[in-house]
Design a protein around this nucleic acid. Structure first.
Length: 279
DNA sequence: ACGAGAACCTGTTTGC
DNA sequence: TGCAAACAGGTTCTCG
């Protein structure tokens, strides 16, 4: 579920509650998430002070005072919720990790489907970590330009929808925001990626940035699982132009018909688009 | 080498 | 109503 805007929202909430605080108790309630957790996971974290919380693609990165970094990925259904104190709240069914800080903040990682991931790395070798090393550019960085995007797509025969989901090409987009960005760029999700470099990339680039910025400002999108660290829902799901709107009318001013939003399946995932204004 | 599809796991929604 | 199938925001492995 969580794509870049949801992970960014989560990071900001965690940073507010935990930056500068010391973890006084870390509880690991099962040996694995998607993968086995590293040996001594909880022990290596408890007693450590949190220096900084940031994000790379869909990974949450928590820098600790002994030069280790905690990497977390929310998978499809993962959520991080912060409460003050845990005395009267027994763990829920899929609460897998619990972090308690010395300011009373209690952070719970809950993940029903358990596609989430966690690992530890040295700060110095983070860029070589197998989850981080293959990632493409951050879509909201100034360095992510139409030229960078064009170069990454050149020669690719796969549909642009699939190419944008490839984290090596651009890191952080998922199914929702790819559909939305392609809509605002007026590009058909079925179009071959190699036809994008040039003018279409000039439209696609700002569309990607716009959708991500707006979704972050709305606190992300809550479909079924995602909540902000406060437990509050995100709001961007109310602003979807195409995602989840199969059969509804396209609202774009320039849409000629206007057409009905269609749903197709591409590499096993739902794609929503307007056949009238996406070419 | 590349791309499509399956697999991973659980919960919820849809359809017969 | 009840049950089974389909579907869900992601990543990774296998197979063609």
């Amino acid at each position: 579920m969580p794509e870049l805007p949801e992970v960014e929202t989560t990071c900001r909430g965690l940073a507010r509650a935990l930056t500068g605080q010391r973890l006084i108790r870390v509880e690991q309630r099962r040996p694995d998430l998607r993968f086995p957790l590293p040996p001594g996971f909880a022990e290596r974290l408890s007693g450590r002070k949190v220096e900084r919380i940031h994000r790379r693609a869909k990974y949450i990165l928590i820098d600790l005072d002994d030069d280790t970094v905690l990497l977390m990925h929310l998978g499809m259904s993962g959520r991080m919720v912060i409460r003050q104190g845990r005395a009267n709240t027994p763990p829920a069914v899929h609460d897998h990790l619990i972090f308690e800080a010395d300011n009373g903040a209690c952070v719970t990682f809950n993940d029903a489907r358990r596609f989430g991931m966690a690992d530890l790395s040295d700060k110095g070798s983070l860029q070589d970590h197998p989850w981080i090393a293959p990632l493409g550019p951050e879509p909201l960085d100034d360095g992510f330009t139409a030229k960078v995007l064009s170069d990454a797509l050149r020669g690719k025969r796969t549909p642009i929808k699939a190419a944008l989901l490839d984290q090596r090409i651009v890191a952080g987009l998922g199914n929702i925001y790819v559909c939305e960005a392609l809509f605002y760029a007026g590009i058909s999700p079925r179009r071959s990626a190699r036809t994008i470099p040039g003018r279409r990339a000039e439209r696609l680039l700002p569309a990607i940035k716009k959708v991500l910025h707006e979704a972050i400002a709305a606190g992300g999108s809550s479909l079924r699982d995602y909540v902000q660290t406060t437990g509050e829902l995100g709001y961007f799901q109310h602003d979807f132009a195409v995602y989840g709107r199969e059969g509804e009318l396209c609202f774009a001013g320039g849409c000629s018909t206007p057409s009905q939003i269609r749903r197709i399946v591409q590499s096993g995932r739902s794609t929503f688009f307007c056949p009238g204004c996406q070419r």
